[in-house]
Deep mutational scan, measured.
Amino acid sequence: MLDDRARMEAAKKEKVEQILAEFQLQEEDLKKVMRRMQKEMDRGLRLETHEEASVKMLPTYVRSTPEGSEVGDFLSLDLGGTNFRVMLVKVGEGEEGQWSVKTKHQMYSIPEDAMTGTAEMLFDYISECISDFLDKHQMKHKKLPLGFTFSFPVRHEDIDKGILLNWTKGFKASGAEGNNVVGLLRDAIKRRGDFEMDVVAMVNDTVATMISCYYEDHQCEVGMIVGTGCNACYMEEMQNVELVEGDEGRMCVNTEWGAFGDSGELDEFLLEYDRLVDESSANPGQQLYEKLIGGKYMGELVRLVLLRLVDENLLFHGEASEQLRTRGAFETRFVSQVESDTGDRKQIYNILSTLGLRPSTTDCDIVRRACESVSTRAAHMCSAGLAGVINRMRESRSEDVMRITVGVDGSVYKLHPSFKERFHASVRRLTPSCEITFIESEEGSGRGAALVSAVACKKACMLGQ
């Protein structure tokens, strides 16, 4: 009897593995994704193909990295998701002549009506938060230079001027797309009239992360975010950046690689679950690469896999709870928690219980395998993109072996128990001629924006502006 049951459990697990095998990517698959990513990057950089390229390769006008001589107080704003952060950054000489960066910050959550109302409502709310922060720190009387981390696709015309191309991540505030974001912020500050600010720089969160990590390690020339969304930036040779005049030196390019796949480059790798996630998203047909990796989508992918296993009578005796059938019910943090389970399955059992399920031991094991399959594919897909960037940098610099540091931020990278190990191992397999160091950014977005502002202020002083 026991043997029969054991055989049935083994057969069930084997069927589960057959279904989950769809998520496995072979090294040849990853090399294919990497080569296609490089081709799209090239198209994004070139003037004649930029418009139709899915990977936009947006110039950021960040050319210099901090040298350690900029000092002063800077205000930093960070808008990239449902939370908005205001930070005071003091850049100065530390002990023994070292450079020191001290920060104080406060988080504000953005109400739904500000995210989806008008641009005026959104930026009025942001300036209200700045006003509140300055009151708390008794700094209303000071006109501070301000660095703005704005983590949406922007076409820069200068370091302090950028046109919002399109909202992502659930934002829909009308009247912002096609307009200068810094102008919208300046107008809102003017409307309030109770404080003055000098907006000197606007950067993407990947750029802010790279600059913040450069402060720790001067070989950091790539910034990457794996959180709600997924994106990367890197220092490109100016001669390859056709959208900006000049051939000397390097400029940081914001790849906006989340949109890779929007022209069909990933079609052969998309599964039924991916198509369902895409169809029910706020932007169907867009940001397809990001939807395979980002935390906004990972939990939902797992939920759809679990429903398939229920329908195949391989999980929960073929019956799903009402909660499990509800879109968004299986949160991405559950994926991390399930994979963090120590082996007694308590954590998995508790999560499934909150979803109205009474799982068996085998159910718990199957749910864990589903989570591992989805998150491992995410790590491997992400590795193909980064390997594409790094191999490109090595080739354009004609280096036999390139040493490089990548600064990384984002909740999936930082909080998932195995993502970074799987990701690092896969990147290294795909970049055999590179020695890569990964560092995690601390308060990256805010500190990085302030350091970019410090560079901009120093330049302005040198130019006598």
Rank of each mutant, 00 (worst) to 15 (best):
F269S: 02
V367F: 01
E9S: 13
S398M: 03
R192W: 03
R369C: 07
V203E: 13
C382E: 07
F123A: 03
D205A: 10
V412N: 01
C382S: 11
Q465K: 05
Y214F: 04
L271R: 03
T361A: 05
F195Q: 08
V154Y: 10
S109Y: 08
F195T: 09
E93P: 15
E28K: 10
I189G: 09
K39N: 14
A232K: 00
T376W: 11
L134W: 06
Y234M: 02
G258W: 03
T206H: 03
Y125V: 10
R43K: 15
F330H: 01
K13V: 11
V181R: 05
K136C: 11
A282M: 05
T228P: 13
F260D: 00
L463P: 13
V335I: 09
K104D: 10
E312S: 12
E120C: 12
A208V: 06
I366D: 03
M41C: 06
K140Y: 05
P111C: 05
E52P: 02
S263K: 13
M381H: 03
K172Y: 06
L304A: 11
A456H: 08
G246P: 04
R155Q: 10
I126L: 09
G193M: 06
R191N: 04
H380V: 11
M107C: 06
Q38F: 05
E265M: 02
P432G: 10
A53T: 08
V401C: 10
M139N: 04
C457A: 13
F316L: 11
S336D: 06
H317C: 07
L75G: 02
K346A: 05
M462A: 15
V335W: 02
T103E: 08
E399L: 09
Q219C: 15
E272T: 14
A329W: 04
E236P: 01
T326E: 15
M115Y: 09
R403P: 12
L315F: 01
L451D: 06
D198P: 12
H105G: 06
R275T: 08
L451I: 12
I366T: 12
P66W: 04
H317Y: 12
M87A: 07
A21M: 08
L309T: 02
K459T: 10
V401H: 15
V203D: 09
V181S: 11
C233D: 02
P153M: 08
E272Y: 07
K458V: 04
V427S: 12
V455F: 05
N350I: 01
E322L: 08
H50D: 04
H141W: 10
D344M: 05
N283K: 13
T332D: 10
V199G: 09
E372R: 07
E236T: 02
K143Q: 13
E22H: 13
P145H: 04
W99G: 11
R46P: 00
S418H: 03
T103D: 03
V302S: 07
V86L: 10
L134I: 12
K291H: 00
G407I: 03
G410N: 04
A114F: 10
K458L: 05
L306V: 10
E67Q: 14
L430T: 00
G178C: 14
L324S: 03
V452R: 04
T405Y: 11
V89Q: 03
R428F: 12
S280R: 14
M115A: 14
T255G: 00
R7P: 14
L352T: 06
N391G: 09
G294P: 04
I351M: 09
I211L: 08
D365F: 12
S280H: 10
A259I: 06
Q239T: 12
N204D: 10
D124H: 03
S411G: 13
V203R: 05
G229E: 15
N204A: 04
D160G: 13
S375Y: 10
C371M: 02
M8L: 11
K104I: 14
S131H: 09
M121R: 14
F171D: 14
E112V: 10
G446P: 14
E128A: 04
T118I: 03
E52A: 06
A370C: 06
K136D: 12
E95S: 13
S64V: 11
R192G: 04
A232I: 08
F148R: 04
F438N: 09
T168G: 14
S151A: 13
Q219K: 11
V244N: 03
L164G: 15
E70I: 05
E93N: 14
L288D: 01
I130P: 00
S373M: 12
E67W: 13
N240A: 09
E339K: 00
G227D: 13
R325I: 14
T65P: 05
S69M: 15
I211A: 05
S353K: 09
D113V: 09
L271I: 15
L88C: 10
F148G: 04
V62L: 06
F133I: 03
S54G: 10
I159E: 14
A320K: 14
V277F: 06
R447K: 13
Y289R: 00
T405H: 07
R369N: 08
V89G: 03
H424W: 11
A449S: 11
G299W: 01
H424I: 09
A114M: 15
A329R: 11
R397C: 12
E435T: 07
A232L: 13
N166P: 11
A282K: 10
W257K: 02
L292Y: 10
D344R: 03
N83K: 07
V305H: 00
L315N: 01
V455L: 15
N166F: 12
K31L: 07
L270F: 05
R192V: 12
E22P: 15
N391V: 11
P284G: 09
D73A: 03
E248C: 09
P59V: 03
L430R: 00
Q219T: 10
N204K: 01
D247R: 09
I189L: 12
H50K: 06
E51G: 12
Y234T: 04
V408A: 11
R63G: 10
Y108D: 01
E157P: 15
E256C: 07
P417E: 12
V335F: 03
R327W: 12
C252S: 02
R36I: 07
L307S: 08
A378S: 08
R192S: 04
E14D: 13
L79Q: 09
V408D: 04
L304K: 04
D78I: 07
E67Y: 09
K169Q: 03
K15A: 15
F133K: 00
E248V: 12
G178T: 15
E22C: 05
D113W: 13
S127C: 14
G299P: 01
K15G: 14
T255H: 01
L185K: 05
S280G: 13
S445P: 15
E290A: 10
T332V: 06
D194I: 06
N283D: 10
E157S: 09
G229I: 06
